[in-house]
């Protein structure tokens, strides 16, 4: 059974997207990669459901 939400779940997706891009401004590629890794770990912990995280890992293979 799928538990990962893949329909729109943010109030203002454009603003969140812009904030993510903005967070990478002035970072080197290495710093950006590290930033992304920290984000993934933070969000995975916030989700708090192992199955959903595993499902997301699968979905990101796209």
């Amino acid at each position: 059974m799928t538990k990962l939400t893949t329909t729109t779940n943010l109030t203002n997706p454009d603003a969140v997207y812009a904030a993510i891009i903005d967070a990478h401004r002035d970072l080197t590629d290495e710093q950006s990669a590290a930033f992304n890794a920290r984000m993934v770990l933070l969000l995975a912990n916030h989700i708090g459901d192992d199955d959903i995280v595993l499902e997301a890992l699968n979905a990101a293979q796209a």
């Binding site: 939400t5 329909t7 729109t8 779940n9 997706p13 997207y17």
Partner: peptide, 17 residues
């Protein structure tokens, strides 16, 4: 990445700007 995800998932379609 957004364009790739948009082929499969609705949330990413909404992010394609």
């Amino acid at each position: 990445a957004t364009l790739d995800l948009a082929r499969h998932f609705d949330f990413a379609k909404a992010m394609v700007n």
